[in-house]
């Protein structure tokens, strides 16, 4: 192994350049799309021999660095809607508690793993598929016409009829505060069920349901992920002792640099190009998961934990 380092909590040695490369790649995607990248990095860490529970917890720790780096870069560019982010975060915390409770109920009935797996594949597949189709359509036909905007959809009418409408100047939208709160609860619940940060669900929710501009979505999503992952890291370290700081440190050195490069690249790409790229990645992960569900696994026993 080239330049190995021993991970004292994981109890294994890994190659430093490999970890820097993995961190850099996921950090780049994080800065580019506003996703934490946990849904990509955790399985990769498990593949290189990190125990699943430690991979997931240490991944949260490195996402704190990547998202603080990315949030800083986006905040300097004026593309973080702090008001919207805080409301989504509040909803997300409540939703996380709901999700944890649901998982407990499902585990008691013995159906948890099935529900998690199906939810994961359906969410990834439907979000990725919708984003891909919509972005492709948008690239081909251009933005929606004024005629289409003049006839508000049922969704728009329902949203506009909700109470407590407020302005979100950074996102250039007027919405009821119930919208980010309720959607935060929804994403938080799904994220807790699937055991991920939820960035890849939050980004499409902000784009399609909150109608936020893509460049503000990325920064605001990172801002929200930062707090979610701080909470997860401290809880995992305190309750389960599963954060490997050495692993997280090497990953985050790669990821913060990657996040900056991603944020720079993000500014150079058009919104539809960003969306379609994220859709391709999400669909790729879905395909990999589907393959994993259908092909006979190499081992019929596996260590517990992880996504």
């Amino acid at each position: 192994m080239n330049f190995p380092i021993y991970l004292p909590v994981a109890g294994n040695a890994v190659s430093i350049p490999l970890l820097l490369g993995l961190g850099g790649t996921v950090g780049f995607l994080s800065g580019l799309f506003g996703v934490g990248g946990g849904f990509l990095l955790t399985p990769l860490l498990i593949m290189i021999g990190i125990p699943p529970t430690i991979a997931a917890a240490s991944d949260s720790n490195q996402i704190v660095a990547a998202s603080s780096s990315g949030t800083y870069a986006h905040a300097r560019a004026g593309s973080v809607d702090f008001k919207m982010g805080l409301l989504l975060l509040l909803g997300g915390i409540a939703g996380g508690s709901v999700g944890v409770y649901l998982i407990k109920l499902l585990r008691a009935t013995g159906n948890a793993d099935f529900v998690i797996t199906v939810t994961y594949v359906l969410m990834l597949g439907s979000i990725g598929g919708y984003m891909f189709a919509e972005s492709l359509r948008s690239i081909r036909l251009g933005p929606p016409t004024h005629r289409e905007e003049a006839r508000p959809s049922l969704y728009s009418r329902v949203v506009n009829s909700l109470p407590w409408q407020v302005e979100f100047p950074r996102s250039n939208v007027r919405l009821s505060i119930l919208m980010p709160l309720l959607l935060g609860v929804l994403v938080g619940t799904l994220a807790a069920i699937m055991g991920v940060g939820g960035g890849f669900i939050m980004v499409p929710v902000m784009v399609y349901l909150l109608r936020m501009p893509m460049h503000v979505v990325v920064g605001t999503s990172l801002f929200q992920i930062l707090f979610t992952c701080i909470n997860v890291t401290v809880l995992q370290a305190r309750m389960n002792h599963t954060v490997d700081f050495v692993l997280a440190l090497i990953l985050l050195i790669g990821s913060v640099i990657g996040a900056q490069l991603g944020a720079m690249t993000s500014k150079r790409l058009k919104a539809d190009q960003l969306k379609i790229l994220l859709a391709v990645i999400v669909l790729g992960v879905t395909a990999k998961m589907l393959l994993g569900l259908l092909v006979t696994p190499e081992h019929l026993l596996s260590y517990r934990g992880g996504h």
Binding site: N61, Q62, V64, A65, A66, S67, S68, S69, G70, Y72, A73, R76, I230, T233, V234, L235, Q236, A237, R238, M239, H241, V243, F245, A248, L249, L252, I253, V256, I257, A259, Q260
Partner: peptide, 20 residues
């Protein structure tokens, strides 16, 4: 665990902001 977790978060934020 708690001290360790807080330390891990503080270092992560510091490295993130420093790089930023």
């Amino acid at each position: 665990g708690l001290v360790y977790g807080i330390m891990a978060v503080v270092v992560a934020i510091a490295v993130g902001l420093f790089t930023g």
